[in-house]
Amino acid sequence: MNAQIELPYQRDQFYGRSRRSVPAARRFTEWSLTYWGLAKWRRAGDVTLCVSELATNALLHGVPPGRRFLLRLRYDGAVVRAEVHDSGAGVPRVAEEAGGDEEEGGRGLLLVSVLADKWGVGMRAPGKLVWCEFGIP
């Protein structure tokens, strides 16, 4: 009987409401991509940067005191998907949709919208998840 690799791969990690969580999320992403054999993939840095932006947004806007956020990474052989789940209210928007140059925030999602193939927001109770996807040719 031949052993088969099961896809999709999924890795989950919870992070507390701390500044250390963003660099830890980046390291977790880099480790996961390496584990999946994608460390040298030309878009690996884009995935890591987008995870950093989504984690930062969760900490700034979505994680109430005493709560955590979940980073979920998935790889199905064709797509890498990053999701950040938090318990905050509201729907994140890209800066150009949200307001002018004086407005603080939203630029991280602008970066995500440029680097990722797709991104979006899903609602959950409580809170939301913000996701982005990167296709692998």
Results as ranks from 00 to 15, higher is better:
121 V>C: 10
83 E>C: 08
13 Q>T: 11
102 E>T: 14
78 A>E: 08
68 R>S: 15
41 W>P: 10
130 V>H: 03
119 W>N: 10
102 E>K: 10
127 G>D: 05
41 W>Q: 10
60 L>S: 07
60 L>E: 11
43 R>T: 05
91 V>W: 00
66 G>C: 13
38 L>G: 10
46 D>N: 13
88 G>A: 05
98 A>Y: 02
131 W>Q: 12
121 V>I: 12
65 P>S: 09
4 Q>Y: 01
115 L>A: 14
6 E>S: 13
100 G>R: 01
115 L>Q: 05
4 Q>A: 14
134 F>R: 03
22 V>H: 00
45 G>F: 00
88 G>R: 02
101 D>K: 05
64 P>M: 02
49 L>Y: 02
14 F>S: 15
52 S>T: 12
26 R>L: 14
28 F>G: 12
27 R>C: 07
27 R>W: 01
33 L>N: 07
17 R>M: 13
1 M>Q: 06
30 E>F: 02
106 G>D: 11
76 D>C: 09
128 K>V: 11
6 E>Q: 11
18 S>W: 00
43 R>P: 05
109 L>Y: 01
100 G>D: 11
97 E>S: 10
44 A>F: 01
11 R>H: 06
77 G>R: 05
6 E>H: 09
8 P>M: 12
55 A>Y: 01
1 M>N: 07
93 R>S: 08
24 A>E: 11
116 A>P: 12
35 Y>R: 14
13 Q>N: 06
55 A>Q: 02
8 P>T: 10
107 R>L: 15
9 Y>M: 12
135 G>I: 00
49 L>A: 15
101 D>V: 13
65 P>V: 05
9 Y>F: 08
32 S>M: 03
120 G>C: 10
60 L>I: 03
128 K>Q: 09
117 D>G: 15
124 R>L: 14
7 L>F: 13
77 G>I: 01
77 G>H: 06
116 A>Q: 05
114 V>I: 12
114 V>D: 09
88 G>K: 04
73 L>R: 03
42 R>Y: 02
73 L>H: 03
19 R>L: 14
40 K>A: 15
53 E>L: 04
96 E>F: 03
130 V>A: 12
53 E>F: 02
137 P>Y: 01
45 G>Y: 00
34 T>A: 15
137 P>V: 04
75 Y>R: 07
92 P>E: 03
70 L>M: 11
74 R>H: 04
80 V>D: 02
17 R>T: 09
8 P>H: 07
135 G>S: 13
59 L>Q: 06
32 S>D: 05
123 M>Y: 00
123 M>C: 08
36 W>T: 10
80 V>E: 02
61 H>R: 06
27 R>D: 13
31 W>R: 14
63 V>C: 07
115 L>W: 01
102 E>Y: 00
25 A>L: 06
24 A>L: 11
135 G>N: 04
35 Y>M: 14
